[in-house]
Write a protein that binds this DNA or RNA. Sequence first.
DNA 1: AGAATGCTTCGGCCTTCGCCGTAACATCCG
DNA 2: CGGATGTTACGGCGAAGGCCGAAGCATTCT
Lengths: 245, 245
Amino acid sequence: MASQAMFAEIAALSGDPARASMLHALLDGRALTATELAKAAGVTAQTASGHLGRLTAAGLLSVEKQGRHRYHRLASASVARMLESIMAVAAELQPDRARLSVGPKDAALRRARTCYDHLAGRLGVGLADAMIAQGHVELTNDAGILTDPGIAFLRDIGVDVAPIMARRTSRSGRVLCRPCLDWSERRPHLAGALGAALCAHCFDQGWTRRLVGTRAVVVTPKGERAFRSSFGVALDDRGGEVRRG
Amino acid sequence: MASQAMFAEIAALSGDPARASMLHALLDGRALTATELAKAAGVTAQTASGHLGRLTAAGLLSVEKQGRHRYHRLASASVARMLESIMAVAAELQPDRARLSVGPKDAALRRARTCYDHLAGRLGVGLADAMIAQGHVELTNDAGILTDPGIAFLRDIGVDVAPIMARRTSRSGRVLCRPCLDWSERRPHLAGALGAALCAHCFDQGWTRRLVGTRAVVVTPKGERAFRSSFGVALDDRGGEVRRG
DNA sequence: AGAATGCTTCGGCCTTCGCCGTAACATCCG
DNA sequence: CGGATGTTACGGCGAAGGCCGAAGCATTCT
């Protein structure tokens, strides 16, 4: 089968440590330069250039030329989903001891991060849990549904629901959404159009801010208040559970 | 990050052509012996043994000893999902010309095959489409929902709905189901508990039968009648579209 | 017990490929 | 127009690992 060779090629490209680091860095959906990616992977610019060339030639990355910079990004959402699914397996196979002995950078990532176009980590799972508790969404590991009160809620807090509504089913008009297994929390959070819209809203409103050079995001004081008042979510700074009020 | 190394290891393991062939062969959910997998990968038994040892050590496969045979299978559903997601990317990146120039084995695979625990190919997509048309399920690329008439329908034709009903959401009791992007049809078919139950029923009733040494399945005459009468689905043998009556 | 089958281990060959140093090309800046 | 910065091309080094033949266990069959 022809696609079998393609399969192996894609997996092999993702399987080199340096390239894996680059893909990992790109998993937050932003476009990064070759130099930034070289630093992320811990290799020289020449080596990174070679890797990026191969990833782009295969179609996993797309490049955008801007002046003397070349911005690389994941070619499509399906590539992001593939990376997520590999991470899910990695998390599942990861011995528990390795998950406990991690540095402060990991702690920040586990607290809140972006996952291509939506929020993940304790924040992402916490927001999902809050919306479930309030009857705004229903979620399983396999699928999810956004309820009418949930649509009203999102509209209330100012989320642009148009891209979400565009995906409702043709027959009943119900709004389905995609869950994404959180590799650090091992529970589903909101992905798909809903997760993307919610994430975009958080950045627009200044509730969250990206940390440079990492996929981690910080919750601003304004965000703390908003998440508490609108969602009833408070993130414990000392690594504990998410609390719902 | 510790999981980053794990990520690269998993992808690298999946990225070798011989191992990719083995994983591919195991994607139908059955357990195969080392010799069968060696033949599938086109390598000698010694080489296959080495590969299988590495895949098992990493946790991607699980082994079951039975007499002088050792049966290998995918370790978990998340591994199967990962493989599917890589295939989805491969299908997306595949140039169209390569998809047209394929042999008869590919034709059989595209007509009907298993995808870990559910049906795929034109048959899988056709069944999904039929259930959508009759209002039994609603499906998007991201998620799906099984309607009350759909539950009744499945019960009518004798499907064991218990494992499906066990997954309904806690609040409203709605039954969500997982779509899976079909790499040959590029459209979603039914996966998750619903897809697994439906697939199991097809084999139980003798509607479909596995072809030895491949993931392809054949539709029996009895199956032809059942699919036509219960689903309104007829598969065109000459590679055309699925027809709904 | 002896033979056959399934699988694994070991040793050696050989290709692949990741890496960097050097150097060239491209773009922006003063 | 030089100089600085970002990126790519080339060549060579070295390690990793895939492959097989030969041989060794383990299990089953006769």
